[in-house]
Amino acid sequence: MKHLIDVTFAGLTFPCALRYPETARYFPAPDPAASRVEGESVCLTEKDWQFYLDTDMEDCAHTEFSLLTAAFSDALMDHDRMILHSVALRWRDKAYLIAARSGAGKSTQARCLQELRPGEFGIICGDRPILEFRHSERSEESVPIPVAAHSVRHAAIACHSERSEESASPSCSAGNLPARSPVPKPSPLGKVSPQATDEVIVHPSPWNGKENWYGAEAAPLAGLILLERGDENRLAALSPREAAIRTYAQLIQLCSDSAKIKKAAELTTRLLNSVPIWQLTTFQVPDSTKLLLESVF
């Protein structure tokens, strides 16, 4: 016997069928103002349970809550929404995502940003925010673009552009700069990708990670930071193609349906065409975080 509840995500209320009634306590009360999605309840099938329990996950309410992220992400895709494994920050009424595999240091970066700039950064969602794609007509001057790749290896600073055709900052050129040179911030104005047709709104979700970070309101997405560990602190602009596979790998989904897999690829493409993308390679904090602050925020 399934336990039926209503769950609201990003403006939509879904019916949800639970194996464990206790799982309901992880979800907030549904929003009466949200649009209701009619149809089959979102749930984990017996095949889903069998697949995940074969990986030694415990059969319990908390597991059901964790696995429902994928089931809901699949359901949300039919409504131009998806769930991305990332920390969603809010800065000056815009959202920024730090995406990476587990253990790469997303939470550490978020914590460092808050410590280095107290009061400036809020957290929309600590682990699995919901992205909503809204088709929009973009102006040519609406989206900032990254203009430089910055690398810090111990005391040396090198600055070079990885998007030379679209660089909006004439002061940043290839070659070495003296240590501690002021790093130019990206221009607030610049050309947008010709493929950009979406405004992406980042919404909270109940999946906030082990730190249980949340609280900031939803905001339009202004940038995506892909994080990885390395032997130097380095920040580089990425093209959508360069970011594609790594970003797709962080999209939460059941991966059991070919149509959904294709839809996930479509939404990833739309995401990467809508905002600037950076790769942050982190060797140690807070130096890598300072690089991020100097270049992006």
């Binding site: 697949f51 959508p240 193609r241 970011a243 594609a244 596979i245 797709y248 790998a249 059941l254 991966c255 059991s256 349906d257 070919s258 897999i261 294709k262 690829a265 479509e266 990833t268 493409t269 990467l272 065409n273």
Partner: peptide, 26 residues
Amino acid sequence: VKTTLCGMQVLIPSREASAYCGSIQR
């Protein structure tokens, strides 16, 4: 699953196939 990702043709293993090939192939 063969599909398009940022203009690239890619192969993506479904959950059932992921036991044999865990990564995306361009």
